[in-house]
């Protein structure tokens, strides 16, 4: 750039600046309403939660949230010697580690079945399988608590028909978490099925035709064509299901109240209880541990399932 600008160039620059300002003004006037609400009710709480986790804030400090003591990482060290928290973390890990693969396998099976050839009533099956996804988890938990009733429940009476005596699913610490896992897979596989079905239908048929001509068997087609092309959909499914399942809360609240013997206490449920006891700082610390776990799981899934090209 020259040291002395001639007039037309300065004028052009002035116009450009004015145009830039105008664009900024217009852009932000569209963005402002959302951004304001987002700042106050989302971003501020996320930061406040982090600050709270470093304090001993309790329910009694509700009106004076700034007059609390800083305890540093005290809440976090306490968490990891809190037996109930450790139990809830273990339960949540089991729920995710078993629940996510189970849900994905069910969804893949359903999507594959609906994608094989000309299926009549495909829309009926798709809508039917998707039904539990849109219904209130509280209502579903109420219905399932009843289905699993040891005496009058449908499940044990059906088992009785084939001579099996079913356990008291939700009252027995050995089967309570497993029951909730199966229920969660039952409720959620429909949404993944729709995503997987769309991905399957997006795979061009000529790839399979060419592979058949080249003498590739069904297994090879599955491994070499279907799976690689499904990878983005599988990754997406694993990530959103993982994020959702790590936050397990409503099912144990309605069905078991975290019991028996804390066998279905989840991290979110533990946080909710701590909040109920008035331990706000402690609850905030636990919620940040959950947040970190969610980010870590997502990163891990991207590593495992993400593109292999990089």
């Amino acid at each position: 750039m020259t040291a002395v600008l001639d007039r037309p160039a300065a004028a052009t620059r002035g116009r450009a600046t004015r145009a830039r300002r105008r664009r900024a003004w217009i852009g932000w006037s569209f963005a402002a309403p959302f951004t304001l609400l987002f700042l106050v009710f989302a971003l501020l709480p996320v930061l406040a939660s982090l600050v709270m986790s470093l304090t001993d804030m309790r329910a009694t400090d509700l009106r004076t949230p700034l007059a609390v003591n800083v305890v540093g990482f005290g809440n976090f060290t306490r968490l990891f010697s809190d037996e109930l928290f450790l139990r809830s973390a273990l339960n949540t890990i089991v729920f995710v580690a078993v629940g996510v693969p189970l849900t994905m396998v069910a969804a893949l099976a359903a999507a594959n079945a609906l994608n094989s050839g000309l299926i009549r009533f495909r829309a009926v099956f798709r809508v039917g399988f998707y039904l539990p996804v849109v219904t209130s988890i509280v209502a579903i938990a109420v219905v399932w608590r009843f289905l699993l009733d040891p005496e009058a429940g449908l499940v044990n009476n059906l088992l009785g028909l084939i001579g099996v005596e079913g356990p008291a699913w939700l009252q027995n610490p050995g089967t309570s978490l497993g029951s909730i896992i199966v229920m969660a897979a039952w409720r959620n596989f429909g949404s993944l099925m729709v995503i997987f079905l769309a991905a399957l239908q997006g795979i061009p048929a000529h790839l399979y035709e060419a592979a058949t001509l080249d003498g590739a068997g069904r297994w090879q087609q599955l491994r070499r064509i279907t799976m690689p092309l499904m990878r983005p959909a599988l990754l997406f499914g694993a990530v959103i299901t993982g994020i959702g399942y790590l936050q397990l809360f409503e099912e144990p609240l309605v069905m078991t109240q975290g019991g028996p013997l804390s066998s279905t206490l989840s991290v979110s449920y533990h946080i909710y209880n701590q909040f109920g006891f008035g331990n706000y700082g402690y609850a905030a610390a636990a919620s940040y541990v959950l947040f970190v776990a969610i980010v870590a799981l997502s990163v891990l899934q991207f590593r495992l399932l993400g593109s292999r090209d990089d």
Binding site: A48, Q247, F249, V267, Y288
Partner: peptide, 9 residues
């Protein structure tokens, strides 16, 4: 961000 993180603040 899980709902549990924001709900206390």
């Amino acid at each position: 961000v899980p709902g549990m993180v924001t709900f206390v603040p």
